[in-house]
Each structure stands twice: as C-alpha cells, then as structure tokens.
Design a protein around this nucleic acid. Structure first.
Lengths: 251, 251
DNA sequence: AAGTGGTCTAGACCACTAG
DNA sequence: TAGTGGTCTAGACCACTTC
C-alpha cells in the first residue's frame, strides 16, 4: 500500500492536473530541492497509479512553467537558477547596438528597515513589517546604467547579511534559491518614464532632470507568493528595455 | 492514394514537428483562413497516416503559439484576432490605478512614403521601398495618452486607403488579418525614456521636455516575416507599461 | 444520436547518458 | 549494458455541441 494515497479524480479535475499540483507541492515543501532529480517517469506512474502518458503530461506543464528541466538519458530535475536562465528570463536591458552583456553588480547600501505602505502592498505583508533594503549599481561594459533598489521581506530571508549578500558567487536569484529555497518563477513589471533625481543623476552620470526609465518589479515564488520588490532606474541613452511577445514559429 | 504525400520521417525530425510545419504551411498558404475550422483530428490522422496522439501533439504546439484555437465539441479553428486577444497579447498600457481600458483611436495622418534606413532594416525591405505611414492618437478614459506612428510595407497591403483604415469596425490587427490574410503572431519591443518633442507635447498635453516612454515595436507574421513597425510615445504620468514573465502556477 | 475535442491507458521502440 | 527521457501507436471512454 503506497504511503501517499493514489490520485483521486478530484472534482472533475484531470489526473494530470492533480499530479502536477502534487509535484509542485512536493517541490515547494522541500521533498525535492533545486537541482535534485525527481523520480523517473515510470516510478511516478507507479507511485500515483497512473500511466506514463499522464505523468508526462503533468511534467510537461511544469517544464513549460520553468519549474522542472528534462535531460534525456539522465532524468528530470528541479530547475536551478543559473546565470543564463536569469539573463534570459528576468533581465531585459540590452545595448541598443550590439549583444546582450552580463552586468557587473556593486552593492552601495544594505540596511534593515520597516515596510512602508507601497512596499507592504507589493509584498503582501503588513505595513511596518521588517524588510531588508539593498541598493545596487549595475554597470554594463564599464558604464553605470542601472540603479536597483531591492526590498525583501526579512521573514523570508533569516540571517541575510551584507556580507552574505555581497560575497555570493552567483546571481541574486540564485542566492535566494540556494540559501533560502526560494525559487522565483514569475515577475510582474510596470514601467514609466521619470526625470533623474539628483542622487540617481550622480550615480548614472547624467544631468539632473534627464529622462530615465523606471521599472517596478515584483518577483513571485510558488503559490504566487511575492518574495521581492525592486525598483530599477535605467539610463536608456545607449540601452533599451527589450521584450518579445508570442512564440516564434520556425517553419 | 492521398493527394498529399504522407509524412516522411524527414531527417530525424519528429513526426509531430513535421505535421506542425505542414499545418502552419497550410494556414500561411491559405488552405485554411482565419476563422476556418481545420479538419478533425481523426481526419488529419488519416490524411497524414499518423496516430491521433501525434496529431494532437502537433495541434497542441500551434494552440500554444496562438495559431489555432480548440473548441470542444465543435472543432479546431485558425485563430481570429478579436479585440480581447489583442488587448491581452499586444497592448500593454494600463492605468496605474484601476482596470485596463480599451483605447479610443483617432487617425491624425495617413500617407504613402519611402522607407528610410531605420524602417527598412526593421521591416527587412530595401531602402526607399514604398511604405504607408499612419499617425494615430489613442485616448484612455478620454485623456490622450499615446501617439502611434505606424509604418507598413505597402507591398503587403495593396489598396489600403485612409478610408478603409479609418472605417474599420475592429482593431488594426484584425484589419490586417481579415483583409490581407496577415496574422500577427509575435512582436518585438524596445523601450526607452525620452523627452517630449513640441509636437508630442502638444498632442499629449504635457510640457515640452517632459519625460515620455518610447516603445519601438516590430510585428511579425508567419515565418517571422516583419509586417509592421510602430513607434509609440506614451505619457506615463497616470499609466504604466505592464508586463509579466513566467507563467503563474496555480496550486 | 452523431460528431467533435479531452482524458487516459498500455505498450513498443528510439536516442541519449553513464558505468 | 542498463536506465533515462522522447516518440509513436491503437484504442477506450468522457464531455461538450449540434441536430
């Protein structure tokens, strides 16, 4: 008799949907951690008493959502936030001419604070809850282009210090994932044009009042839980915010 | 003996990939037009001598790409550009507070011209090729918010006149599709912050030099053929460019 | 009742990875 | 060689739409 109850045809829900939810639950509860292999398709079929075709359909959905990664001949793994995945999915600033480049990040400020109304709403936490605020300067090809102001709910990142934050050998989202088990699956961004404040103008080496691009981003993890709020101020003199919609359909 | 040759296992390509390409080809060549039903899954399986499962996998891919739409009990149809699809996929300007609203469009200018270097590159046509230029003003809740400058390759839109353009009863992309068989499947957008020119300032009722958001979009049809270049100037005083990345994974 | 897409099964065989 | 995911088949049954 299996430890887990076999899937039940819960309320008209397809079996593969139910299985997908169970797998996602297993990941978010830590049964499998980022980088781990989940059981083989045959093993999952046995465990949940469904056919392999149904397992594949459930796994397909999670692969499409960026939660799992298949490697033929090796297994199916919980997605890791590596640098290239981040660049591809969540970093949208590119040179107007030339190729996409990796930013060089320096941390200007790291402090603990209380959530103001705006941040509290974005992160779905009570006002005055503890948060961590970080200011980063991002350079592209040596030129300062982006000022990031990041706000994290302190409760989700226990023990996070400036030293840990700045000594990471990888991206920020990788740190969230490897140290705190927080996988960023989705982001929501709102953009507007603003004029440079004196502080931003100084950091980005433009005149006060210059037009800059403001990107307000909220990052979400499993169950659409907000885990980071970020405001980026971008000098778009030589860079664009770039984006495509719809899949390319190679014939 | 079928009119079309049955699928051949072309060069290590999966059958469903080959079938997907054939279906896309049939659509882009007019075998089925927008709004038409394609043959039933059983009929396609017979025609191409594959199993229904393989047909479903090919159709799945085209549904995911927005080319086809399934309707249970009725059939599978070539996607139509209706207003809600457009709003959802290709219109990203939303009020900072409140719900997404449909824009009210008025055409300020309509003329024939020759492609300059920038437009020629964006549309992949020779410089000095004939193009159609259109300027639209978009109002949201009665306020002028966006100035659109649209450039179309004239060769793709024979006989398009200001009267036809402005008397349409639906969206612009719907006109492309219903009158010229051009389905917009993908867009590529680049954003930057600019300062308002005198002309834009007047149209958008802001001060000259105000920060505005510039969106440069190229729209692509089948085979990644560019069919429209558009520069939008947006007053982001009360509106945002809004965008999400990654799928939401409801548990 | 007939026809459509939607779900699910059980299994065969292939392509890739590792020891 | 053994084990993994990837492709493909043939069919059963269900849910929805239309007549």
């Amino acid at each position: 008799m299996p430890v887990r109850s076999p899937l039940e045809a819960a309320a008209g829900r397809p079996l593969y949907e139910e299985l997908r939810a169970r797998l996602l639950d297993g990941i978010s509860r830590g049964r499998w951690r980022a980088g781990d292999a989940i059981p083989t398709e045959a093993a999952l079929a046995r465990e949940f008493t469904v056919s392999i075709g149904t397992v594949r359909k459930a796994v397909d959905a999670l692969v499409a959502g960026g939660v799992l990664i298949r490697r033929q001949g090796k297994g199916t793994f919980v997605a890791l936030h590596n640098a290239s995945r981040l660049m591809f999915h969540f970093f949208h600033i590119v040179p107007r001419e030339g190729d996409k480049a990796y930013p060089e990040v320096s941390t200007l400020d790291f402090r603990r604070d209380r959530a103001d109304a705006g941040v509290a709403r974005a992160l779905a936490i009570p006002q005055d809850d503890r948060v961590i605020r970080i200011r980063n300067l991002l350079k592209l090809s040596g030129m300062p282009v982006i000022v990031d102001d990041i706000t994290l709910p302190a409760g989700l990142f226990p023990g996070l210090s400036e030293k840990i934050f700045t000594s990471r050998d990888n991206t920020i989202y990788h740190l969230y994932q490897s140290r705190y088990g927080i996988n960023v699956l989705r982001t929501d961004e709102r953009l507007r044009a603003v004029t440079a404040s004196a502080a931003h103008a100084g950091l980005l080496r433009v005149a006060t009042g210059s037009p800059l691009l403001e990107v307000r981003r909220v990052a979400f993890s499993f169950r659409d839980r907000p885990v980071e709020a970020r405001t980026s101020i971008v000098n778009t003199a030589a860079h664009d915010y770039h984006n495509t919609f719809g899949k390319s359909e190679p014939l």
